[in-house]
């Protein structure tokens, strides 16, 4: 059981990360990651939707026939997205305005329907919730990384607009890392998101390759050790 859970956690965070490996949900990923806080807002919203939709779908899966499962999944997801949207409208209005259309668009985020289809419709509620949580965290982490990098490169700040999410007290959270005469617009514009995303994926691949290399080396050294003992 624990091994299976460990697998789910690892899948969501790294080996099968929705943003880095499955490349799902790129539209919001690329569109709203111009600042860290925007990324965080959308990340949390997506995370919540993922968890509850996965849970719900795994609970109702035995009553959903194969032919109509996709509409049913979408309806479930859409309901939760609507709830989230209303909540954000009520409590974080600034962020709600700044994320705009991308909150309702969470419905069409392939990462969510993808997990519903690939995982929640086949597994129990506990595993599904965990999977949703981990996938959500993995997705949010990439959003934050990209959002942070783009914000720093583009306008030299970090946590700009934190008050939109956390309330007025967070206004002071904004960190001015360095000041530009001119903004580096490319980082803020969508092409910058694509390039940044590409670089993050490349980074992940480098890390994976290094690890694979290490594994091979370990095996080799073990072999060598055995040879010496035989001799």
């Amino acid at each position: 059981m624990t091994a299976e859970w460990k697998d789910i956690v690892l899948n969501g965070l790294w080996t099968n990360n929705p943003a880095l490996v499955q490349l799902l949900g790129l539209c919001p990923l690329l569109a709203v990651t111009n600042t860290f806080i925007n990324a965080l807002g959308l990340g949390i919203a997506t995370l919540l939707v993922l968890v509850v939709s996965n849970l719900t779908i795994s609970l109702v899966k035995q009553w959903v026939t194969k032919e109509i499962r996709i509409p049913v999944f979408i309806m479930i997801i859409a309901s939760f997205v609507t709830i989230i949207q209303l909540l954000m409208n009520a409590y974080t209005f600034g962020l709600y305005v700044s994320l705009g259309i991308f909150i309702p668009l969470i419905v069409t985020n392939c990462a969510i329907i993808g997990r519903a289809e690939a995982f929640a419709s086949k597994n129990g509620p506990v595993e599904s919730s965990l999977d949703g949580l981990m996938m959500g965290i993995g997705f949010t982490a990439i959003l934050l990384l990209l959002g942070g990098a783009r914000e720093v490169l583009g306008q030299g700040t970090l946590f700009d607009g934190a008050h939109l999410l956390f309330g007025e007290w967070a206004r002071g959270m904004t960190v001015q890392i360095f000041e530009f005469e001119q903004q580096f617009l490319l980082a803020i514009l969508p092409p910058g998101a694509f390039i940044g995303m590409g670089l993050i994926i490349a980074l992940k691949n480098i890390i994976d390759a290094k690890q694979a290399e290490k594994k091979v080396k370990d095996v080799k050294s073990v072999e060598r050790a055995r040879v010496t003992t035989v001799n």
């Binding site: 001119q182 903004q183 580096f184 617009l185 490319l186 514009l189 092409p191």
Partner: peptide, 10 residues
């Protein structure tokens, strides 16, 4: 082009 869209003024 990267420069042009990033730093239009300069």
């Amino acid at each position: 082009v990267v420069l042009l869209i990033s730093f239009p003024v300069a």
